[in-house]
Amino acid sequence: MSTGKRPLSPHLQVYRPQITSVLSILHRFTGIVLAVGTLHLVYWIVAAAQGPESFAAAQAFTASWLGRFLLFGWTVALFYHLANGIRHLLWDAGLGFELRQVTLGGIGVLVATGVLTLLAWMAGYGFIGSGS
């Protein structure tokens, strides 16, 4: 049977963005961001394995404006994917399917992402803990 070019349901663009759908899309997006970010992790380890010169180059890139910007984005993506991933694991266990719980959990994920990112960068810049 030929279906031709008939439009398919659902049209994503006709739906008002909701916290459930936006967070779901963000989970995928941050997953892709993290996968791309692993390139830097591999580069850092391989550079350290190669010797002091290549390690210094890797550290210089990480400390640069671009490096810090990418690292910041990667931290946000990591904490979001981590928090929302735990939310997904709870759903897998059959927990938290009430609409209210889904909404509150989503807000919790956003708050956790913000707080953890802030804490990590404050620690990184030496405001708290042993960072220097």
């Binding site: 981590l82 991933g85 735990i86 997904h88 694991l89 990184g124 803990g129 960072g131």
Partner: peptide, 29 residues
Amino acid sequence: RVTAIALVPLALWFVASILSLIGADYATT
């Protein structure tokens, strides 16, 4: 799911470790 569960503690440990390594030289790292 199995890898996700494993990555929860591993990722947190990794972030904490990297933070403690900030400013460390080649030999220390």
